[in-house]
Amino acid sequence: MLNVLKSREALLAASWLALIALAGSITPNFVSIQGLRDLMTDLSILVVLAVAQMIVILIRGIDLSVAANLAFTGMVVALLSVANPGLPTVVWPLVCIVVGAMVGMLNGALIAELQIPPIVVTLGTMSIWRGMIFVISGGSWVVQHQFPEGYLAVPRTQILGLTLFFWIGLTVAAGMWLVMTQTRFGRELYGMGGNPRAAQYAGVRVKHHEFWVYTITGALAGLSGWLWTSRYAMANTDVAAGFELQTVAACVIGGVAIAGGAGTVIGAVFGALFLGTLYNILPVIGVSQFWQQALSGAIILLAVYFNMISRKPPVRRILPLASPQGAGE
């Protein structure tokens, strides 16, 4: 029950800290203030996207278009910022959220309204938006020196010793936690994922919720587009290629059930932290960067196996347990 879920998250958190400690013992720089600050900055994007992916998986969906959305939105905002360097920086994240939400709405409309399987829809939109990057950019790159100054500087602003990247990641995670645990919308998503028909019978507006889930996921992917372009100071066709799989992996590691209906925001966050940290640590512990992908594959499989074991369908016992007449429950 709840304790099991809690302990899973605790276990993840502990292994995450152990990972950092391991890296620190090899390269003390890794756990220096600057090292940790960089780590948190790096992880914020994966955290945002993992949380975005989590709510989709929770309702038995999947969004393979998050990375394409990120790249497309990133290119849109990069081009806009190059063309209008004078606008205040706060415009860019807003533009990203709006564009990303619109991309998500298309997914949501196709999935909720037309009832097309999410994997088909998002596979298609993934291609479409990847291709659209090329269409709007003509295949050219936007690189560091082209961005307006504030575009790159603002997210690096430090508050309480941590960058704005970190605070955005934290805000998204905390906000989603609040939505998923303390609001009607969030709890109804759990109901939809656990038993869609029962949710409909209970009066949950299933289509409405489904549409908004994909829209929220799109908006968060859009926000990540801004984070990504300013973090890496570039926008091109191949930005974040394959990143959608990392978001799914983070969720699976975080204990989100791929069959829907079970999983927590905290789990997804720690799944993302664990996976992201692992990637950052590989060079530190002397493993070639080229093995990163194989390792993440193995970890996904292990996590899925672990999920399966811990979520075995309950055995419906008929024979009374050996204890004499102990059936008190």
Partner: peptide, 9 residues
Amino acid sequence: IGTMSLFRG
């Protein structure tokens, strides 16, 4: 998804 990463990895 896992073996996709693993095999290419």
